[in-house]
């Protein structure tokens, strides 16, 4: 059935196939680029709306390598959604932590994890564990799920719970850098300004 092989037709057929295939893929890439980008944006927006009160627009920013989003409702700053990573049981545990300008953790959401299904992976489903992060005030709390800590652990998954607490804790620290240690009342109006300043410095260094 197959044609006889000689050098010319081997090179020709393989070359033409590769060319054709990459052309098809290039075309498909251009066609699907927009829907893929839209899907990404929708996903981030969905994640942000899960962790913050209602907002209208979002700005993506970066501070010392940490990605975060500023959510605005008209002229008022609704809060920050900060991406935060900690080492879990099976790999990186990536959270999106929503913090309102008065330094209250509004809510948290898991962006990606590789925890054990049925144990650590419950950090995305366990109602009791998840509800403790709703309107959570980190002030004066000991951020560990171990003995003496203030975090309720998921049953049989202390390491995951600890990682979760650690990620929230570092998000709060990022928040503190963002607002530049100002008192929370000032932070509301000064946030956007301080922000740009900080961002600029970080980039320059």
């Amino acid at each position: 059935m197959a044609a006889k092989s000689n050098l010319t037709n081997m090179v020709l057929v393989l070359g033409v196939t590769c060319l054709l295939c990459s052309a098809v893929l290039g075309g498909a890439y251009v066609l699907t680029e927009e829907p893929i980008a839209n899907a990404q944006v929708e996903k981030t927006n969905k994640a942000i709306s899960k962790v913050l009160p209602e907002f209208q627009s979002v700005q993506e920013k970066e501070i010392s390598g940490v990605k975060y989003y500023e959510a605005w409702s008209g002229e008022t700053l609704v809060g920050y959604a900060i991406e935060s990573t900690a080492g879990g049981f099976g790999g990186p545990l990536v959270l999106l932590v929503g913090i309102t300008p008065d330094r209250i953790v509004c809510n948290t959401s898991v962006l990606s994890h590789s925890e054990t299904p049925g144990l650590g992976a419950k950090c995305t489903t366990d109602a009791k564990f998840m509800s403790q992060w709703k309107n959570f005030n980190p002030k004066g709390k000991k951020m560990t799920a171990g003995p003496g800590g203030d975090i309720d652990a998921i049953t049989a998954s202390t390491i995951t719970s600890n990682a979760y607490a650690k990620a929230v804790d570092s998000a709060v620290k990022v928040f503190d850098t963002i607002v530049g240690g100002q008192s929370s009342a000032d932070a509301i109006t000064g946030a956007s300004y301080v922000n740009k300043n900080n961002g600029g410095q970080e980039d320059g260094e």
Binding site: A2, A3, K4, V13, L14, T17, C21, V24, L25
Partner: peptide
């Protein structure tokens, strides 16, 4: 298949399959 020379048929098939997978 009828125009693909025998000796390169595996690479050609793999390229075709990989194209559909990327799609």
């Amino acid at each position: 298949a009828p125009v693909v020379p025998d000796k390169v048929h595996i690479p050609v098939y793999i390229v075709v399959i990989a194209t559909f997978v990327t799609l």
